[in-house]
């Protein structure tokens, strides 16, 4: 029982960080029906920027906020230069461009900060919030989950209560009609990219701040697969679906896989891909997503 509870807590911890990256993917998918393969790398670049700022003596949370701003501006620039000129309905060039960005950003991060893992400063108070027999719920888990919910609430408010949020929702629901009603498509999508990158940077910072992990350029590749599965599971265009998907993937990774004897521990990545396969085959719109209708 103790072990089970501990694993559930682990699931929540991991799931929240996956959910943060998944939220970033969902935002971009909502806006442009594009899956950004470079999302994880953009996030890790942001997290490295945070680390660098912290080395320069800026307090940790200040560094995180500046890092989020930095990656938001960078993402807005990337969208303008590389994404906007392509037809959103033609997926292949867009996938190829994001794969190219993946390679370039990954290489730059590795060149500037090297491949050696570095320890990332603590974002949250260390220690346990709650102990019961051998079960420990760390402050880190609580804060990771809390920040994920907070980000979702903030985004939800941004999208429903502000004017640019309204424009964003209009564009994601129907591009042509919103263009006809005078919405500037480009800047609106740019806004989506910026928000997504900021969420991604926060997610990567929280992920790297996990006391058991260290930051290194390729750490996001694994997280990317988990997050993608989470986003697909929740429905690729649903914000809250990302949280549900993230928690489910975390649960599969930390709880389900542990209790199935014939699946070895290191297969958690494969388990995530299997979940992805099942979801996409049986219910491509995910748990909370909108069903796609095709017209000829």
């Amino acid at each position: 029982m103790d072990l089970f509870l501990q694993r559930v807590f682990d699931a929540i911890t991991n799931g929240s960080t996956y959910a943060l990256i998944a939220v970033a993917m969902v935002l971009i998918f909502k806006a442009t029906t594009l899956i950004n393969f470079a999302q994880g790398e953009q996030a890790i670049l942001g997290a490295f920027a945070v680390l660098q700022l912290w080395y320069w003596g800026i307090p940790m949370w200040g560094a995180v906020i500046i890092g989020m701003l930095f990656s938001a501006v960078l993402a807005a620039g990337l969208e303008r230069v590389f994404i906007r000129k392509f037809d959103p309905a033609d997926h292949l060039p867009l996938v190829i461009i994001t794969l190219g960005l993946f390679l370039v950003i990954n290489a730059i991060a590795a060149i500037v900060w090297r491949f050696d893992p570095q320890s990332f400063p603590q974002l949250f108070p260390s220690g346990n919030a709650f102990t019961y027999n051998n079960v420990r719920l760390t402050w880190y888990s609580i804060f990771a989950f809390g920040s994920c919910v907070l980000v979702l609430v903030v985004f939800q408010t941004l999208l429903t209560k502000t004017k640019i949020g309204l424009a964003f929702r209009a564009v994601s629901s129907n591009l042509e009609s919103s263009r006809l009603s005078g919405i500037k498509i480009g800047p609106t999508l740019q806004f989506g990219w910026a928000l997504a990158a900021a969420a991604g940077t926060l997610g990567a910072s929280i992920y790297a701040a996990n006391p058991v992990l260290q930051i290194e350029p390729s750490m996001m590749l694994r997280a990317l697969i988990f997050s993608v599965s989470a986003a697909a599971l929740g429905g690729l265009d649903s914000l809250w679906g990302a949280l549900i998907g993230g928690l489910t993937i975390g649960f599969v990774q930390s709880v389900v896989v542990q209790y199935i004897p014939f699946i070895p521990n290191e297969m958690s990545l494969s388990a995530a891909v299997v979940v992805l396969l099942i979801v996409l085959t049986l219910r491509p719109s995910g748990v909370l997503g909108t069903k796609a209708v095709e017209r000829v």
Partner: peptide, 27 residues
């Protein structure tokens, strides 16, 4: 699955497949 999954979803799934190959052979 590609008969049901299209475009980007297929890209995602096949990328996932590529990502798990090393961990499968290391079993």
């Amino acid at each position: 699955p590609a008969l049901r999954i299209r475009g980007l979803y297929l890209a995602l799934l096949t990328f996932g497949l590529a990502a798990v190959f090393p961990s499968i052979v290391k079993l």
